[in-house]
């Protein structure tokens, strides 16, 4: 329990630091007052605007105000779109989350079994082929994979759409493409493109970890106990393999989410990545700040989820209940 509280404290600290960086954007990426008032405004007018926006307050007060607003989901108005940042992000968030989630499900769902299989059948030809292919998957740039897939499956075969999300269904404030055929079809190419690198990475990691675990003393002792190969491989080796794999899957999920920009550009996916590209081009500071805080929040939530998974799987993290009395 204290372990979780500690982690929660760390999470809050990380979020505060990230918020401060986001907040600092306002101060150092140009003077917001200059962006708002016209060229002809007098010094007095500028001062009036500055005071009205509270920009003459001490930094600490401003930061506190920023945090207060952020807690209510208020990141101000986008310079570029003239709409509340929260609304803009909220509109795009589901698209990116669904995309990155599906690609990670594909990558993990295939990567772990393939990695384990290649580790257990180290000498086989298929295992060698899979390893070689996975190296290609790691080496190829994402945009190239995306363009190649579009060329084959959209242009050549005409099976799948090359851009957009297809039809989406609104569930409350959430728009999902998972419930319509065209939405699902539209998801295939971008999620595969986004997932290829992750799939190769997870597969190679799972393989390396599995090989490592199969060499440990407790696996040798399990063999000496005469356990069946299936029990040794899955009940003992696989569970011990999963711990580091979960960490990487969590970290990579954050990466996929934050850096889906390339794939969203290739497939014109109406997600956060596309929005951020525009925000960067127009120095849309409120939007950038809001995005930054959101990404930090995502990483924090994922890390917390990874910690929880560790607690569920690894008794050593849970802390020893009986140990205090045992020794």
């Amino acid at each position: 329990m204290s372990f979780l509280l500690g982690r929660l404290g760390q999470t809050v600290l990380v979020l505060l630091v990230a918020s401060f960086v986001a907040f600092a954007l306002f101060r150092y990426v140009g003077d917001p007052v200059n962006n708002m008032v016209g060229q002809a405004a007098s010094m007095a007018d500028r001062e009036a605007v500055r005071r009205a926006l509270g920009l003459d307050d001490p930094m600490v007060v401003q930061f506190a105000r920023f945090i207060g607003n952020a807690l209510r989901g208020d990141f101000g108005i986008s310079y570029r779109f003239g709409q509340p940042v929260a609304a803009l992000i909220g509109e795009r968030f589901p698209a990116t989350l669904e995309l990155s989630l599906i690609s990670m499900v594909i990558a993990t769902g295939l990567g772990v079994p393939l990695g384990v299989w290649t580790a257990l059948h180290r000498g086989s030809v298929l295992s060698q082929v899979l390893l070689a292919v996975s190296l290609v998957g790691v080496a190829l740039p994402t945009f190239l994979i995306g363009i190649a897939l579009i060329l084959i499956f959209s242009v050549g075969l005409g099976w799948l759409p090359s851009f957009g999300r297809g039809e989406v269904v609104a569930l409350g404030g959430w728009t999902t493409g998972l419930l319509t055929v065209s939405g699902l079809k539209a998801l295939v190419l971008p999620s595969v493109t986004l997932g290829v690198f992750q799939l190769a990475l997870i597969m190679r990691l799972a393989r390396a970890e599995m090989l490592e675990v199969m060499r440990t003393d407790f696996i040798r002792f399990a063999k000496a106990r005469g356990l069946k190969p299936r029990a040794i491989e899955y009940r003992h080796a696989l569970r011990n393999t999963l711990l580091p794999v979960i960490t990487i899957v969590g970290l990579q999920f954050g990466n996929v989410f934050a850096f889906s920009i390339i794939v969203e550009t290739v497939f014109q996916w109406p997600g956060l990545g596309l929005l951020v590209i525009q925000a960067i081009q127009f120095a849309d500071v409120p939007l950038l700040a809001g995005y930054l805080v959101l990404i930090a929040l995502c990483f924090a939530v994922i890390n917390l989820a990874v910690d929880l998974a560790y607690v569920a799987i690894d008794p050593r993290v849970r802390g020893s209940r009986a140990a205090g009395r045992a020794t």
């Binding site: 003393d217 003992h236 569970r239 011990n240 690894d314 050593r316």
Partner: peptide, 17 residues
């Protein structure tokens, strides 16, 4: 034929009671 190995710290699966 059973076995006892050198290192008891690593002979047992850490994730199983």
């Amino acid at each position: 034929i059973a076995a006892v190995f050198q290192d008891p710290l690593t002979s047992l699966d850490p994730l199983m009671t």
